[in-house]
Design a protein around this nucleic acid. Structure first.
Lengths: 175, 175
DNA sequence: CGTAATTCTTGATTTCAATCAATGTTTTTG
DNA sequence: CAAAAACATTGATTGAAATCAAGAATTACG
């Protein structure tokens, strides 16, 4: 049900090709679009004075967006960058809003997506609170066993708030 | 607009009084209610083998819930405990669902609440990724300056993934 | 392809927060 | 209100992950 509804929206959306390392969204830009990843992978990160904080990865067949910018129309805090060559489809907020206004099922779908997101983020929160690097890795791998097939270690390390060196050492402990 | 709509739901909800340290929700229990805090404060935490992880605080005039349990009807991973004597109002999922079915404005309200939650959690995620304890504290204080008036330090420390000793030391650095 | 660049691993050292410990302070409750 | 309990602070020490550094492996690309 969710699927067909979404596919309808996607039919008339335009495609986008991002070469590796290109930015889909940059800090400071207002971007009111949601992207569906047809192939490739992206990362969402924040640039602080001292470090890059990796917030999320976007995989094939999933949606990604600079959410606060999408929802509130505020400038994005985040960068979204292609980890490798990536094909995307963009749905604009206007499109989305029109669909929601026209058909209550879209509103309910959006609801379900938001619920799922909140619960995902709760999992992520527990991960990040976990003191031991070994356990942080194990928890994430349990939910995303294919992580290392999709994403270079250095980004995973940042996602798990540890250095690449620590991640490298921790991987052999928990194997 | 949000307010009046919510208040309608709250009128026929039953009140609950929790003495200090009592549990509103315990791990393993299915709890499909959302609570509005009329007075007092609560904390949401997870008990792991080694540590308590503090997920969230609930203050006066805000809503709290074991959200995954509410949404999915799964057993709660979390405890919700009164930090001091607390007065609550409970809204059941059935009530909420009925309101949503009866009036689309409730659906939109639920949407707005979920959007807000997701964005809050993104902020929280950045906090938790921040390496320096000093900065973690500063970031949280910027958003919740009244934190130490409401919540005992030991819970704040756990919320910020540091020990009470570290929090105590860090507070005098950043003043 | 082969060379350069990037990323990953491994080891040595340092650093910063955790732990341990003792004392002071606030809160609870009989 | 007094005693006990819980909590917060402060100092000394330890320990685990960060940093620094070098080499190995993988990937990019001319």
């Amino acid at each position: 049900m969710e699927d067909t509804l979404l596919r309808e929206l996607l039919t008339d959306s335009k495609t986008l090709a991002l070469p590796k390392n290109e930015f889909l969204v940059k800090e400071g830009v207002i971007d009111q679009q949601i992207y569906y990843i047809e192939s490739g992978a992206v990362r969402v990160f924040l640039q602080t004075e001292f470090e890059e904080l990796t917030i999320r990865f976007g995989y094939k067949d999933s949606f990604i967006s600079s959410l606060a910018s999408f929802v509130n129309g505020t400038p994005s805090e985040f960068y979204i960058q292609a980890i490798r060559g990536t094909q995307l489809r963009a749905i604009s907020k206007q499109q989305f809003q029109a669909a929601i206004d026209a058909d209550i099922r879209y509103l309910k779908l959006y609801n379900a997506i938001l619920e799922g997101l909140v619960i995902q983020q709760l999992e992520r929160e527990v991960d990040l609170l976990t003191a031991s690097p070994v356990e942080r890795l194990q928890r994430v791998l349990q939910r995303s066993p294919q992580l290392f097939q999709e994403i270079p270690s250095k980004y995973i390390a940042s996602y798990l708030r540890m250095t690449p060196e620590t991640l490298s050492r921790v991987r052999k402990i928990s194997d």
